[in-house]
Design a protein around this nucleic acid. Structure first.
Length: 288
DNA sequence: ATGGTCGCGCAGCGA
């Protein structure tokens, strides 16, 4: 399968994006989780798959090369994985109990030069193109890393514009490292000048959203006060000093079918020996 | 306590 061919161009009726609303309604649950090392979080991931039975689970920060990815344990939980691993840093995966087709790693497609960091993978699950994205953090505003973050987001937008159609069923899920507005932080003033909230970063994400996405978690939680990441330091979780930086964006035909969206805050709980990630899973459910 | 926590990989970086 040519990964450069847009989804829906394969000729298979089940992959025709414009037919998504014609499919018999079934539950479809899509989740994203920055696991901060898939090896350390292996038992949690397997347990979470068994408990919540998502149709797609997007992982970020594997910090693991492809060869060391726990593929056997995931298979024992009944799922296959599409993996774009990297040693030490980054690394993303897409997990599903269904077949994953049309897998593409990175930006590909000659949109821009290849990215040396493994931050993006996509595949088609039950007719929906699902991206697992780990946006760069950016460290500090104005830094070289911040420039890389903004450029990376621009490349993602270019990929969407050139290879996809907002009328297609597309889900962009992952750790965006962006809190969209002040509802997405418990202490917004504390984070205002950080790379998670700075105006240039928010504007870059707004341009991606305007391409044709709905923020599905916001749709179901307009009041805010729902976070996905709490720093390991400064007792952030007990104080609920969190931010919502992990997102599930969906194009309109998918977002119109959403029925619920939530954060599995339980996965952030526990003592040091329980080894929680600093991120909790973000889940969106659809009648698709 | 003048930092504070993780994970990687074995010093110091990135988050």
């Amino acid at each position: 399968m040519d990964p450069l061919v847009p989804v829906g161009a394969t000729g298979h009726p089940c992959l025709d994006p414009h037919r998504v609303s014609q499919l018999a309604p079934m539950g479809m649950k899509i989740a994203t989780w920055n696991v901060n090392s898939v090896k350390v979080r292996e038992a949690r991931v397997v347990g979470w798959l068994r408990e919540h039975a998502p149709d797609a689970l997007c992982l970020q920060e594997l910090k693991t090369a492809d060869e060391a990815y726990p593929d056997d344990a995931i298979r024992e939980a009944g799922c296959e994985s599409a993996v774009f691993g990297q040693r030490t840093y980054n690394g993303v995966a897409l997990i599903s109990p269904h077949p994953i087709s049309d897998v593409a790693r990175g930006f590909g497609g000659g949109v821009a030069d290849s990215d040396p960091q493994a931050r993006l993978i996509r595949g088609v699950v039950r007719g929906v193109t699902v991206f697992s994205a780990y946006f760069p953090n950016g460290r500090t505003v104005g830094s070289e890393s911040h420039g890389y973050k903004l450029a990376w987001m621009g490349r993602l937008l270019e990929l969407l514009e050139t290879r996809f159609d907002p009328r297609d069923p597309v889900v962009l899920a992952g750790d965006f490292n962006v809190a969209l507005d002040d509802r997405d932080a418990e202490n917004p003033e504390q984070w205002a000048s950080s790379v998670l909230c700075d105006p240039a970063t928010r504007e870059a994400l707004e341009r991606i959203r305007e391409w044709g996405f709905v923020d599905v978690v916001r749709k179901h939680n307009p009041e805010g006060k729902l976070y996905s990441w709490w720093d390991y330091r400064r007792l952030a979780f007990p104080r609920n000093d969190g931010l919502r930086i992990d997102h599930v964006f969906a194009t309109v035909p998918v977002a119109e079918a959403s029925t619920a969206a939530w954060v599995d805050r339980n996965q952030r709980k526990g003592k040091k020996t329980d080894k929680p990630s600093d991120h909790a899973p973000v889940v969106a459910e659809f009648d698709l």
